[in-house]
Design a protein around this nucleic acid. Structure first.
Lengths: 241, 241
DNA sequence: AACAATAATTGATCCAGATCAAGAAAAGAA
DNA sequence: TTCTTTTCTTGATCTGGATCAATTATTGTT
């Protein structure tokens, strides 16, 4: 039997490793984490993050879901895919803005109320800095997404995603193909066809593992920001100068 | 002859009215504004906001330009259109991320160095709050853009932009049609054709002024966030409940 | 007022990716 | 294992907006 305290310690260790809480004193964190609440969501569930009820800051402890916008026709765009460590902060949005969370796996989230977050921010400047960093990263990610979604062809989109996965997830596709396709703003059929195109260039998927003939086949799809995490960044093997 | 001091006072008055500096004591602002620097850009100029030189916070005093990303093929996406009061903060981005600023009019910008901004943020919590608000608004705007650009048809995009202009700019198109077209991710030809479609529904443009037959022709294109600034928001005349 | 230069419109054609449909493969469940 | 359900692939067809090309408006300049 695991006690509540043991649970709390486990959660605490998990949270304190997140970028949002980096560089903050143990004691300050412990205090803030006391206000933490837990919520479970089930696979298949769809929740609207509107302001009335969700003016909070959410952190994913485990699970998987996508943040989407759905229009009248039923078409959807995927704003982001969130799993362990992911952060959503509806508290920062307009009271009239809402997004839809579609849960792909059973998901456990921690949340803090707007008041608790703002109070902590007032008392702890490092937390304000981390919040600014988190939001700035979101801005940058959204700008890069806009670029990828609007400017790239189907093949380039998939190539871009694969090189991403190669660099950050060690050659493994983290999600199902259809989920990635929807994230890239394309249909599963087009994703599949793009993969056959890439196969001709020496890029194969073997059970979600990316297999390359020479090793540099995906480099041309790499953007500099995610590229900066690559082992070969700015060496003679890298396309980025 | 206008003295430097008079200039500074004029600039100071302008800056202190911006949301970014709301709720901050006069004295604190005066002190921070001392570190302000001014830079002019010319119509037609193109500048890459890369980190090496532009790790700063920029504020538009007057002029007009667009922030874009351009790919190898020469295709571009417009990330945002900036005029008086607009803020760009390359200092918050990754050192490997760069955007291109294309100046449409001669433009005067103020800027603060990353260090000055961070120091001010440390000393003044309200400025941190305002920075968080600014970035959160950027996130939300980008999410709404993503939705509009990916989900809407050409006609809907133009309708959405017009209803925007109707609510915020009192029935006036703020920029040229081609600029708006590129912001909406479409070609001027498609923009023009979308306008002819809208004309059939009673929406006419007379020298950049939006003229409506009944008055509610654009309501169906309205999103709730910009809709909340409409005079009829949540009355029986509004589609939003 | 006359003349660029730039912006906007209109028509004809094209194409990448969506849609529709059917089957194959993989993942879960019993 | 077998059966069911979901995911993925492949082929045929369709379509909205892009592209190309030619005028026509508008704006700014001398």
């Amino acid at each position: 039997m695991i006690t509540i305290k043991e649970h709390f310690n486990k959660y605490h260790r998990f949270l304190s490793k997140l970028p949002l809480f980096k560089g903050i004193l143990e004691d300050d964190l412990t205090n803030f984490f006391r206000s933490m609440q837990v919520k479970q969501f089930h696979k298949g569930e769809m929740v609207t993050f509107n302001m009335d009820e969700h003016s909070k800051l959410y952190i994913v402890y485990e699970g998987l879901f996508k943040l989407t916008k759905i229009d009248e026709k039923g078409d959807e765009i995927v704003l982001s895919i969130l799993d362990q460590g992911g952060v959503v902060s509806p508290m920062h949005f307009s009271p009239y803005y809402d997004v839809c969370a579609e849960f792909i796996k059973n998901t456990t989230m921690f949340y803090f109320t707007e008041k608790a977050v703002n109070d902590f921010s007032t008392k702890n400047h490092q937390f304000s800095i981390n919040t600014i960093k988190f939001l700035a990263d979101s801005v940058q990610t959204l700008m890069i997404s806009a670029e990828v979604l609007q400017l790239k062809t189907a093949k380039e989109k998939v190539g871009w995603y694969l090189v991403h996965a190669k660099i950050n997830n060690t050659f493994k596709l983290p999600y199902s193909k259809s989920l990635i396709a929807s994230y890239l703003g394309m249909k599963p059929e087009s994703f599949s066809r793009a993969l056959t195109e890439l196969k001709k260039d020496g890029v194969t998927l073997e059970n979600k593992k990316i297999v390359l003939e020479n090793g540099d086949e995906l480099c041309k799809y790499c953007d500099k920001v995610s590229g900066s995490n690559c082992a070969f960044f700015q060496t003679e093997l890298c396309i980025h100068d």
